[in-house]
């Protein structure tokens, strides 16, 4: 999955790992008439870009009528470093570290951290409807997709630009076509649908809550539904978030990941 999906997810590893990539995405400003898609994306990016961020959040997954909630705290710096620590009882001690293009996972039941690569990156990220691979994507959405504003519609009582993204020739993307409803005033994605080449809806994400932090708007509650799995959804809720505060240097280290610091 790519940038816009991450935008809709709202935060960092669904959450922190992805946040960085969103920032790079950049969309555009909204003119009064039909705005340019790249301008809309740039304006969205301004909301989601940060030098660093710390947040505490919960991840609620529902599958087959079974609900599971994980809590976490995360530190993200720039577009290449992130650390997520899970704090709920079952997953306490489990942590994920992203450094550049590498992703490391650690559990207290292991002697060492394991680098995730190959098929492991396609695993569901902690039971969510996102994979690690999606969280790691870092290419700009405009590099991967041809974007254009096709309409404007009202979503949850707010006027939105409807962006259509179609994968560029040869681009390696998770979804061939995507539709994104971007709030015309706040430049936050309120709704996104992802489709297969045959036009089948694969995923839908909806922003439930947006908060203002200083000059930026930021999604603090996002629900993602896998349209191919009946009754499957993931809700990501940011409980606390702090932008652009300095992060201790040792945060993004293997010692911190494995709890040996």
């Amino acid at each position: 999955m790519s940038r816009l999906s991450k935008l809709t997810m709202g935060a960092a590893l669904v959450v922190s790992l992805a946040a960085v990539t969103w920032c790079a995405t950049g969309l555009l400003a909204a003119p009064s008439a039909v705005p340019d898609a790249s301008e809309v994306i740039k304006r969205m990016d301004e909301n989601l870009s940060f030098r660093s961020v710390y947040y505490e959040a919960s991840l609620e997954t529902i599958l087959g009528g079974r609900t599971n909630t994980k809590t976490m705290r995360a530190w993200v710096e720039g577009d290449s470093r992130a650390l997520v620590e899970f704090t709920n009882q079952r997953d306490a001690g489990t942590a994920i570290l992203k450094i550049g293009e590498d992703l490391w996972l650690f559990s207290p039941t292991a002697d060492e951290a394991v680098k995730l690569s190959g098929p492991l990156l396609r695993q569901s990220m902690m039971g969510s409807d996102l994979s690690f691979e999606e969280a790691l994507e870092s290419k700009s959405i405009l590099e991967l997709y041809d974007a254009r504003v096709v309409d404007d519609e009202v979503v949850d009582g707010r006027r939105c630009y409807v962006l259509e993204l179609v994968a560029r020739e040869g681009a390696e993307v998770s979804y061939h076509r995507r539709k994104v409803w971007v709030d015309c005033e706040r430049y936050i994605s309120l709704l996104e649908e992802s489709y297969s080449p045959s036009g089948k809806l694969l995923r839908r994400s909806r922003t439930e809550e947006v908060q203002k932090f200083g000059q930026r708007y930021y999604p603090t509650s996002v629900v993602v539904e896998d349209a191919t799995r009946k009754g499957s959804s993931t809700r990501f809720v940011v409980e606390k978030i702090v932008f652009d505060e300095p992060i201790p240097a040792h945060t993004f280290t293997m010692e911190r990941l494995t709890g040996r610091l």
């Binding site: 997954t61 994980k70 996972l105 292991a110 002697d111 951290a113 569901s124 902690m126």
Partner: peptide, 18 residues
């Protein structure tokens, strides 16, 4: 020798055990 095993728990968490 030791090997690391990665697996998903029944709650969907990816976990490692040595």
């Amino acid at each position: 020798d030791r090997v690391n095993a990665l697996f998903s728990t029944s709650f969907g968490s990816l976990r490692i055990a040595t």
